[in-house]
Computed example of a mutant assay.
Amino acid sequence: MSGQIDSRLAELGIDVPQAAAPVANYVGWVRTGNLVVISGQLPLKDGKVTTTGLLGRDVSVEDAAVAARQSGINIIAQLRAACGGDLDKVVRIVRLGGFVACTPDFTDHPKVINGASDLMVDVFGDAGRHARAAVGCPSLPLNAAVEVDALVEIRD
């Protein structure tokens, strides 16, 4: 299915993969009413984590922002599945939750998660503007540097 959002993705040169299957006892997304909750997405590309380690020690802010963008692309993959393939059903990206694996003294979490936030605005325009949290944590699954989850409003 090709609509406005798919055209925008092509214009931006973004290839959205198939939604990744969960690796534990959860699902990639849940719809309740017109809201879709998308499970945390790692910066996976071709089945591998693109960026590992801790910010403030192993990973630069710039590299982590690219990883957050990849997590955002994976959010869009889950969202496409939740919308039956039609991303034009997206009304609003309501909220992103960003997790940054980092040292205790690291404080640039917002700059990292901007990689995902900027992607949502680039793809969905004003509907991509969202509320957000950007927090630090001591570790993430598979030693990923970032993880991002989402809450999205869609239409039938």
Rank of each mutant, 00 (worst) to 15 (best):
D118P: 10
Q78H: 07
Y26H: 13
L12V: 12
G47C: 01
D88Q: 04
N143M: 14
L12P: 03
P110N: 12
V112C: 00
I73D: 10
S60N: 15
L79W: 11
G85F: 15
V59L: 05
L9K: 13
A68S: 11
R132L: 10
R95W: 08
G3N: 11
S60F: 15
T51P: 10
V36K: 13
D15E: 13
L140A: 09
L79N: 08
G72R: 06
V30G: 07
L54T: 03
L42V: 03
L44D: 10
G85Q: 11
G85A: 14
E11N: 05
I5R: 01
A21Q: 10
R129H: 09
R31D: 09
S139C: 14
S7W: 05
A64T: 09
A144Y: 08
D108A: 03
A81D: 14
R8C: 06
A20K: 06
G56F: 05
D86E: 01
G72A: 10
F106E: 00
A65C: 00
A10S: 06
D156R: 05
A131G: 06
L9F: 08
G13C: 09
A64D: 06
C102T: 09
T107D: 14
V36L: 05
D63T: 02
I14S: 01
A68T: 11
V30K: 15
D88T: 04
L140G: 05
V61A: 12
A116W: 04
G28S: 14
G128H: 06
I14T: 04
R129V: 07
D105W: 07
Q18D: 08
D88A: 05
G125N: 10
E62L: 00
A10T: 10
C102N: 08
Q78C: 02
S139M: 12
Y26Q: 13
G125S: 07
D118E: 09
V148F: 02
D122P: 03
K89N: 15
G125E: 00
I14M: 08
N25E: 07
G56K: 01
V61N: 13
A67S: 05
V49P: 04
A145N: 04
S7D: 12
L96P: 03
R155E: 12
K45T: 01
A65V: 00
A64M: 01
D15V: 12
D156G: 07
I14R: 15
D58C: 02
F99N: 07
L44Q: 11
G98R: 00
A21S: 14
Y26W: 15
G33Q: 09
S117K: 04
G115T: 15
L35Q: 08
G3A: 03
V148L: 02
